[in-house]
Design a protein around this nucleic acid. Sequence first.
DNA 1: ATAATTTTTTATCATTTGTCAATGTTTATG
DNA 2: CATAAACATTGACAAATGATAAAAAATTAT
Lengths: 189, 189
Amino acid sequence: MTEQLEQFLTLTIRATQDDLGKILSCFKVRQIAKNEILLNDTETCRHIYFINSGSVRAYFIDEEGNEATRYIAFENNFITTLNSFITQTTSTEFLQATENGEVMAISYQDFRQLLSILPIWKDLYIKQLEIAYTTNTWRLESFIKMDAKQRYDYLFETNPKVIQRLSNKIVANYLGITQESLSRLKGKK
Amino acid sequence: MTEQLEQFLTLTIRATQDDLGKILSCFKVRQIAKNEILLNDTETCRHIYFINSGSVRAYFIDEEGNEATRYIAFENNFITTLNSFITQTTSTEFLQATENGEVMAISYQDFRQLLSILPIWKDLYIKQLEIAYTTNTWRLESFIKMDAKQRYDYLFETNPKVIQRLSNKIVANYLGITQESLSRLKGKK
DNA sequence: ATAATTTTTTATCATTTGTCAATGTTTATG
DNA sequence: CATAAACATTGACAAATGATAAAAAATTAT
């Protein structure tokens, strides 16, 4: 079950066999069922997850009690609630499996441990932070300058998995609109 | 002119006097005039700026030719166009001074150099990435779940400098709405 | 100080999106 | 397989926001 993560690491950083071993031994496999909650908004986020298969979303609930999806991770990506994880304080977000699948989890302690002993792990962390920041920025830009239809089209171009594999409810949520609006959107040209 | 950055570094990381010297010697002071363009969307971003005084915004121009402001940095913060800077490819964004002020600039070469010789610089970079990511995420959340009025109130609470020091045009731009909408917004309760 | 320019406000109207309700469809479960 | 539950679509209407135009106010330049 570690092959996939190993391959990902090999493609991402230049790690020795020894480094790889140390890293992989920190990750534990976990099967996830669709709709399963991996993190509650009352808990502290103790893990970073690498997705072998399936998908996981991060969402929160606003004052009116509506869900809002911040991020969706598919296979070969990491997901966590970074602020809660870094500071080890209560999360304001949920993590939920949006499909059946398999993840590899690394704990906060092991993550910190790897940071202190493996320079290459620090480099990987920097790279992932840069990717996460850049991805986030694009998404933010799409909200600043685009209307709902444009955001949908943009999503279709840049991340079609969201539309292809997940329910309209979650897609609408991710786009920041209601299901009804999404439904109408898809109708018109 | 380096005192401010020095103080910032002292508060943020545990650097020796020697580390501090190496870092500070990489930064060059530059006066900036309101409306001055620090980076054009046809250039590659060669610098990270630390703001001593004044403010700088990052914005882009969408298909319809409208400006959209992604981020505004005030004193004691860094600003750059990260993707262009990291990959040293053409930027899609502008950087523009929104007030008269003073910045400290570090070049891409010096930045890389510090990363390779100073572990503490890597730690600072990680910290700044974490902050940038988290800030970005909050801003993204505000767009997913809030309407314009709520975003305005939220901005007033979390980052009043934007409203207090910059023109409505830029505030509206930052909120992703038109000047006219902002004007109406401020009127009603 | 005056003129020119830019920014802000106000008004009207069009468009987009949200809300609510009803109905049809799919999916999960006993 | 049958039933319930969740999800998707559609319509009618309301609210929010954008577009355009014009006037008022503030800022900048001469």
